[in-house]
Design a binder for these strands. Structure first.
Length: 288
DNA sequence: ACCCAGGGTCGTC
DNA sequence: GACGACCCTGGG
């Protein structure tokens, strides 16, 4: 572990606020001055934007440049993606202008699974608090700039928690789901190593759905926001349902819309970039 | 004090 | 396939 720095000059499509507050991740916190600090694997990082520079600073277990390239998806051309999506229609173009610095992160698969199981029928502030408590209780300590941070617990570490322990940490009815899923992954009833090798998205989804607490929405989030990197999947939650109804469907009661109708609409309009389009729409709808 | 909603899923009918 | 229940927290 050592303190390192990595700077990108003339950066395009990179805005910390857009990246960390578009709902894809839960472990980043805004600092005084507007930078964000968070934990990636065994590393603590601070991300600051100054003009058209991005400055990464961190206590890292490995090369900070490699860590950032992988996690922040730096080798992907988001300017090209935005151009492609902007011509779909005015609505999407407006939301892209609003969240122009969004990037889809490559988050650890295991952490992503547990995080989005916790997200079910929950709100973002509470999801973040629960994940912090899990890390504090079962993760490893890392120090950075005089403060203590904690890694997200490994399956082995989290398996030390009983259902009652999880309930005490505020998971509510999700306690059993996290407990069961941890066990299933540890015992390789669902093999995460094999998941990353699979090509077919439907095959991956099928495997994820075996896990307790993973339904269609959570499975889609995991596939989009983790290292599985399925940019074509379109997670449908209350917000996306809302925005798709307002823009295109215009039904009186959005809760009665068939999910398949939304999925088909997204596929037709956004094609293989539906997941990224979803993030622009989600961020715009929640913030603006 | 009371009600509602929140990045849904599960069990039951 | 539709429906209610589910723990907990914050806001009206």
């Amino acid at each position: 572990m050592k303190i390192q720095e990595y700077i990108i000059e003339n950066v395009k499509a990179f805005e910390p606020k857009h990246i960390f507050e578009c709902g894809q991740c839960f472990r980043w916190n805004k600092q005084e001055g507007g930078s964000y600090t968070g934990v990636i694997g065994n590393n603590v990082l601070n991300v600051a934007k100054q003009g058209n520079k991005v400055i990464f600073k961190g206590n890292c277990d490995g090369d900070i440049k490699d860590i950032c390239k992988e996690y922040f998806d730096l080798d992907r051309d988001y300017e090209q993606i935005k151009q492609k999506l902007s011509v779909v229609d005015e609505f999407l173009k407006n939301s892209i202008d609003y969240g122009n610095g969004i990037r889809i992160l490559n988050q650890n698969l295991w952490e992503c699974i547990i995080s989005f199981i916790i997200s079910a029928n929950n709100n973002i502030p509470r999801i973040k608090k629960i994940i912090e408590r899990l890390s504090l209780e079962y993760g490893d300590k890392i120090c950075f700039e005089g403060k203590e941070y904690y890694t997200f617990p490994t399956p082995e570490q989290l398996s030390k928690a009983t259902v009652e322990d999880l309930r005490k940490l505020g998971l509510g009815f999700r306690d059993v789901r996290v407990y069961n899923t941890t066990k299933m992954i540890l015992e390789k009833q669902v093999d995460l190593g094999r998941l990353t090798i699979l090509n077919d998205s439907n095959e991956i989804r099928e495997e994820l759905l075996k896990l307790d607490g993973v339904g269609p929405k959570v499975a889609d989030c995991i596939m989009l926001f983790s290292t599985l990197k399925r940019l074509d999947v379109f997670p449908i939650d209350v917000w996306v349902r809302r925005v798709m109804n307002e823009l295109y469907i215009k039904a009186e009661d959005e809760t009665k819309i068939n999910k398949k109708e939304i999925t088909k609409l997204a596929e037709d309009k956004y094609k293989d970039l539906a997941g990224i389009a979803q993030q622009y729409l989600f961020y715009w709808k929640r913030e603006a």
